[in-house]
Design a protein around this nucleic acid. Structure first.
Lengths: 256, 256
DNA sequence: CAGTGGTCTAGACCACGTG
DNA sequence: ACGTGGTCTAGACCACTGC
């Protein structure tokens, strides 16, 4: 049944090169939990075992498991709900979605949104894309382009690149028939959970193509957001280049 | 000496309206520590008392103090240093500064920076500024405008508004003679610690005035960042409207 | 060596959600 | 009534810093 996984309880002796790498127990537990998440042992939205159960499985105290879970919850990988259990975060919840969707209406109106797929094709990765997704030159990628509209007016242009190996069978038709956000679909259909992202933001002038799609003059200022998204082992799984119209929307950010 | 401050240990009975507001002990301790920080009992850069000392003072266990400090450290108000103590965060450390300075060179070169003060005057707050700083219409504010250059080329235009009451005696001369970042100066000279900020980001076209100062054509795309910064009690203490040139720099952001 | 924060444990009890 | 996470405690020991 529960083979207690490999845990190193040695208190600092017997390590290569003196006091090299000291890893607290709870960090090791955290690592084991991360492996479980990565392996899909517990799926997004599901509950993980209770703290006492994990403590028994890993042969540590409840407090140690608790501290491991605390960190994963702080990183938004897990979600604690008192009285119910601890759940794997999922992009199907609005709360998680808002962490990645930073463009918001100036007046906080709801705004009806629509997505139009321009293109969805598999091809060899351009050099820059391959580098950012940590692929080998020539590996296959999926390139997806779309326009998002709010209240019928085109507002976001997305140019998305995904590793081909992980997203077999992703087609424009499949996307068109989906009402859920992209990351939710990645999660449910391809088992890829986006957990963290890095963005680089610039102001640029709209190109001819962009201008036409967004229905603004050429040269119109656009907010350009280049995002790399990561799954569980800090493995990059998406490169997204977004161009936003910011006349009635803005990108919100909090500095803590 | 140490009057143990008011702490409510009642376990949920005797509260108005049933199970209204339950506040754990460690949250109350956190509140007391926040008050101490706000009052300036411990200044930025200084150490706060040790966990054991605080536990004795507040009549709780070390673990409870620890949990309070953990949260304040997670919010970057305090900084723990093993073996040394727990310190009040300060904008004089590079680490803190980077949390608020998000514009970075595309190639991570150092880049020599310079600041030129355009203007620094006291005046009655415009309505929008008053609202965002939670001042009364007609209260005095300080308006500060400056250009920041990197490697001699003007890159950032700042239009900064501060509550006049808290920043008495702030002049262009004083600013010109300072080599430290603005927030470090606010901290040392005026006892105002910026702790958190909210930003709204847009792409806009450069106005005549902006174009001239940044040495670009009128209409050139600029990244416009409107920031409200807060001190300890979530009290807004600065409104900053920045316009950034993003040809050789970008605004970096992490989504967690 | 003393003092600080960091880890780990064990146990008691509370608050919440669901039967 | 039960199981979950949440709080609080007390004590032992470890790791880091500085005298």
């Amino acid at each position: 049944m529960s083979d207690p996984p490999t845990i190193d309880r040695s208190p600092d002796i017997d390590r290569a090169g003196g006091s090299a790498a000291f890893s607290p127990l709870y960090q090791q537990i955290k690592g084991l939990l991360l492996q479980g998440l990565d392996r899909g042992e517990w799926k997004p939205g599901e509950a993980i075992p209770s703290e006492l159960e994990l403590a028994a499985r890993f042969q540590v105290s409840q407090g140690t498991v608790r501290k491991a879970i605390d960190e994963l919850a702080a990183e938004n990988l897990l979600l604690r709900r008192q009285g119910k259990g601890t759940f794997v975060a999922t992009h199907h919840e609005a709360k998680v979605r808002f962490r990645f969707l930073r463009l918001t209406p100036d007046d906080d109106k709801p705004a009806v949104s629509g997505s139009r797929i321009l293109d969805c094709r598999r091809q060899k990765a351009p050099a820059d894309v391959a580098a950012m997704l940590e692929l080998r030159a020539g590996d296959t990628v999926v390139n997806l382009r779309r326009v998002l509209s709010f209240d019928e007016s085109p507002t976001i242009l997305d140019d998305i690149w995904l590793p081909g190996a992980a997203f077999k069978g992703l087609t424009a038709d499949l996307l068109a028939g989906s009402r859920s956000p992209l990351y939710a679909l990645f999660e449910s259909e391809y088992g890829v959970s986006m957990v963290r992202a890095e963005e680089k933001i610039r102001a640029v002038a709209a190109s001819d193509a962009q201008a036409e799609l967004l229905e603004v003059p050429v040269g119109h200022p656009l907010l350009q957001v280049e995002r790399v998204s990561f799954t569980y082992g800090d493995r990059p799984m998406e490169l997204r280049r977004g161009s936003y119209l910011t006349e009635r929307f803005h990108y919100r950010n909090s500095l803590n």
